[in-house]
Amino acid sequence: MTDMLGGLAQEVVSGIALGCIYALIALGFTLIYKATEVVNFAQGELMMVGAYVNFFIVTALLDIPMLDGALGFLLAFAGAVAFAFLFGTFLDLIINRPLKDEPVFSVIMATISMAIILRAVMALIAGPMTRLPLSPFGSGVIKVGGLFISVHDLFIISSAIVLVCGFYYFFNRTKWGIAMKATSEDPMAASLVGIPVKKVYRNVWIFSMVVATIGGVLLAPRTLLDTNMGFLGLKAFPAAVLGGFGSVPGAIVGGVIMGVIETVSMGTLSFYFPWVKEINDIVVWIVLIAVLMIRPAGILGREEIERV
């Protein structure tokens, strides 16, 4: 029995780390949705692009002595974030602006096309080989009690927490954050009270790209770098829905729940009940549907009540 509990606790820890990865991607979904009501299906691909850019810079810096260690990684990371700023602006220019007055549906279709294009272009640039980025935090493992957690996973968890807290504060306490929220409620009214709506839209794409880059950089050493890594976004999407689409803390709550369910169902549940193995793929979806039946807006989502 203690064996089972020990295993379960370890799976929960691993599941939290996995869930925080989902949370980082889900956060990107949430940011864009919060300000523009658009679901950006290219979020996973943005993460992939960010991770590749970081990897290219790290590799290029490897040849320079002095810059082949932590300093090089920091420089590469700064470079990738700078790229994210430019790329976010670019995305706003080519997706958001031209389609501003079109139905939300058109913008969503544009993001799906963007996902396909990014995958194809990156495959042309980077080639088809899976790349093996090394973790900047080494391969160290920390042991607490009977539980193991890798240093890298700790960084993933803490980055997710920091980013979620940061954005939560931003949306609720800062002028810009409130302006963004107002824009999402009613862009017309927002522009009437003097909120620079265009700027708000641009910033939100930039934020989302930066978050994606951070996620990608942290994720790449764990899942290895591949142009198909963006498909993980498809798993982060239900996480965002579960937590409550559009809710910043919901991203992490949904992500962690998904991660833990996934790991425990593949682990302990499958171990003691072999039939669970057969339905591993759908366990998270069953939970998702169950939650949505009870709380249609997700766990932390706010129900929209409209006056008619």
Binding site: M4, G7, L224, F231, L232, T263, M266, F271
Partner: peptide, 17 residues
């Protein structure tokens, strides 16, 4: 599953077994 990127549950089970 083909394309999986996380194996914590399975590895844990092998350890338990």
């Amino acid at each position: 599953q083909r394309g999986a990127t996380d194996f914590a549950g399975q590895v844990m089970n092998l350890n338990k077994g």
